[in-house]
Computed example of a mutant assay.
Amino acid sequence: MRLFRNSGIIGIAESALTFALEASRDSHPNEYMGLLRGEDARKLGLEESGTVLTDVLIIPGTESNPVSATVKTSMVPNDMRAAGSVHSHPNGVLRPSDADLATFTKGDVHIIVGAPYERDDWQAFDREGEPIDLPVLDVDPPEEEFFDFTQEDIDRELLPSEEDDRGGWLF
């Protein structure tokens, strides 16, 4: 079951687009490749239902050169918020190649960013490679808290609390 199929993608956060443009510029003359994740629009304070693209994931082990970028599929996280892909075309062409179309089968939106990687140098596509309008939204993506714990939480995990029936410790 796909998380975003019912409500649709309604836009991309300005910060996600800016990141994709900057990452593409930094990768030039090689292609850049990343995956897109989204967040429920209501969680971002919007009153309409749907998904806003909020994050660009960098996949470890991605290999790129001036004409292609390859993601190691074994490194792609199994992420319920996965929504599509973004990659650059150092030649500036904002149309998907046949190779691009072959990768568009997963996800609902695919973005191509072209040199010189300025604010208007991108285009979104559906999975068939047809251009789509994707509004840029001024929203603040939620902060991910990877380290959402305290020293007390660590101590509680490390220190035994009571002995169990087998002579071991329960945590």
Rank of each mutant, 00 (worst) to 15 (best):
W169E: 12
D120G: 08
L21Y: 04
D164W: 08
A102V: 10
M75Y: 05
L36S: 07
T73L: 14
D40S: 05
L57P: 00
G168S: 09
V136M: 01
D153L: 02
D126L: 08
G11D: 03
A23E: 10
V86D: 00
H110I: 07
G61C: 05
V56H: 02
L159T: 15
R119Q: 14
G84L: 01
E118W: 06
A41L: 03
S161C: 07
G92E: 08
S49V: 08
S74E: 14
D155Y: 11
E118S: 13
G167S: 04
E157D: 12
D153C: 01
E14H: 15
V86T: 02
D55E: 14
I132V: 15
Y32F: 15
I10V: 15
P60N: 09
E31V: 05
D98L: 15
G107I: 06
D120A: 11
V136L: 03
A102M: 14
L158T: 07
I132W: 00
S97N: 08
K43F: 12
D100Y: 05
L36V: 06
N78M: 13
F149E: 07
R2I: 11
P142V: 10
A102H: 10
D164V: 02
K72I: 13
I9T: 14
S161N: 13
P135V: 05
G168P: 00
V56M: 13
A23H: 04
R81G: 10
V52F: 09
V113G: 03
H28Y: 14
G114Q: 08
D120V: 06
S68L: 07
V136I: 15
F125K: 00
A23M: 08
I132H: 01
P90H: 07
L57G: 02
G61F: 04
H110N: 13
H89P: 08
T51C: 13
A124T: 01
V67C: 03
S74P: 02
E143D: 15
S97L: 12
M75Q: 12
A124I: 01
D121W: 02
V136F: 02
I58C: 09
D155H: 11
P90L: 03
R166E: 15
T62L: 04
A83D: 04
I112C: 00
L134Q: 08
D98T: 12
A124M: 01
S7E: 14
S97D: 06
T54S: 09
P116W: 13
L46C: 05
D140H: 12
F125N: 00
I58Q: 15
T51N: 06
G8Q: 06
L44P: 05
S161Y: 10
E63M: 12
R95W: 11
Q151G: 07
R81Y: 14
I111K: 05
S64C: 06
Y32D: 03
E143F: 09
M1L: 14
H89L: 08
R166Q: 11
D148R: 13
D55V: 04
I154K: 12
Q123A: 10
A13T: 07
R81A: 14
E157N: 11
